[in-house]
């Protein structure tokens, strides 16, 4: 590396007859050298290359069988079930979580206690236990009806086994999800500046409007990352619905694996790759949702990856040009 003229040199000062110190005005600051970063980069790259090489060449993984299974209709049917269960539970769980959080933050001691107890119970009971309870419960009663106790039923569902299994899975996951979502939503609401509540009250905005248009949108900024975390956990929790005889992605792979015992490893790989894809999609959506809710929170919006790439390239080019000019 050649020193640009006039760069600040510290170590290489000649021992005798030091030249008069040059003026520091209008000089470009040399970026700090980071040798550690280069070493770490090399180490990581070597390890990654080794890992990929092993993945590709090791016959243990049977990539040809992976290719065979990856887009099989049975697997895709299972994937669809996973998506359906996840989507329903994510939405119902969030709605339930919002209601529980509002109850917990309300002025009514009864609502507060009820919400606290629910969250306490559902966070304590393992999800699999909740699911099996519901499953046996439904087997016991055959028809599950929703209505006034001892009174008329508003809603009755039975019949189609798949619909029932699906309902059990969605109910179980939503009940569980709501308990966790409640805490996420409550944390988000508490993170909103007290001044915002005061300004909304001082303007006399109706309570519902205050929540929908002021407090909740501001809370979403901190709810989003936490709820996405929760959602990714949920995607994987759906693999438990296998135990209530619903064949989701994991369940399908499991049952195919017992039919074709030689293919267990490629089937697990198929499941892994699909879960990776789902999680990545969620992360991409998360980025844009967070960016949307960042409106106004910062002076300018965070750049999208594409914008980042573009400015990164431009910076590199400019730096190269500067170095060349020196």
């Amino acid at each position: 590396m050649s020193e640009p003229p006039g760069a600040v040199t510290l170590a290489e000062a000649p021992p005798a007859d030091p030249p008069p110190p040059r003026k520091l005005t209008a000089q470009r600051v040399q970026p700090l050298r980071r040798p550690g970063r280069w070493i770490a980069t090399v180490v990581v790259l070597v390890l990654a290359a080794q890992f990929v090489h092993g993945l590709v060449t090791n016959p243990f993984y049977q990539w040809d069988r992976f290719g065979y299974w990856f887009l099989r209709p049975t697997i895709l049917d299972g994937l669809l079930i996973t998506l359906e269960v996840t989507a329903w539970s994510a939405v119902l769980g969030l709605l339930g979580g919002i209601l529980l959080a509002l109850a917990r933050l309300s002025r009514s001691p009864v609502l507060r206690a009820a919400s606290w107890t629910y969250v306490w119970a559902l966070r304590s009971i393992p999800l699999i236990v909740v699911l099996l309870f519901l499953y046996n419960f439904s087997a016991l009663y055959k028809t599950l009806s929703v209505g006034v106790p001892f009174g008329p039923a508003f809603l009755t569902f039975d019949e189609s086994r798949l619909a029932t299994d699906m309902a059990i899975a969605v109910i179980g996951l939503s009940l569980n999800e709501a308990a966790y979502a409640a805490e996420v939503v409550r944390g988000g609401i508490l993170s909103v500046d007290q001044g915002q509540h005061e300004a909304a009250s001082a303007l006399g905005l109706p309570k519902g409007y205050q929540f929908r248009r002021i407090v909740f949108p501001l809370a979403l900024r901190s709810i989003t990352p936490n709820y996405v975390n929760q959602l990714i956990g949920l995607i994987k929790s759906t693999s438990l619905v296998f135990y209530v005889s619903l064949l989701d992605l994991f369940g399908t792979a499991q049952s195919m694996g017992s039919t074709y015992p030689g293919d267990i490893v490629p089937l697990l790989l198929v499941v892994t790759v699909w879960y990776l894809i789902l999680t990545s999609l969620v992360s991409v959506v998360q980025f844009y949702v967070e960016r949307y809710f960042a409106r106004g929170a910062t002076r300018s919006l965070p750049p999208t990856p594409l914008q980042k790439l573009r400015t990164g390239l431009r910076d590199l080019r400019e730096r190269a040009r500067r170095e060349a000019a020196v």
Partner: peptide, 9 residues
């Protein structure tokens, strides 16, 4: 208010 408390979003 002293601190304005405008709605940032």
């Amino acid at each position: 208010f002293q601190n304005f408390n405008l709605f940032p979003h």
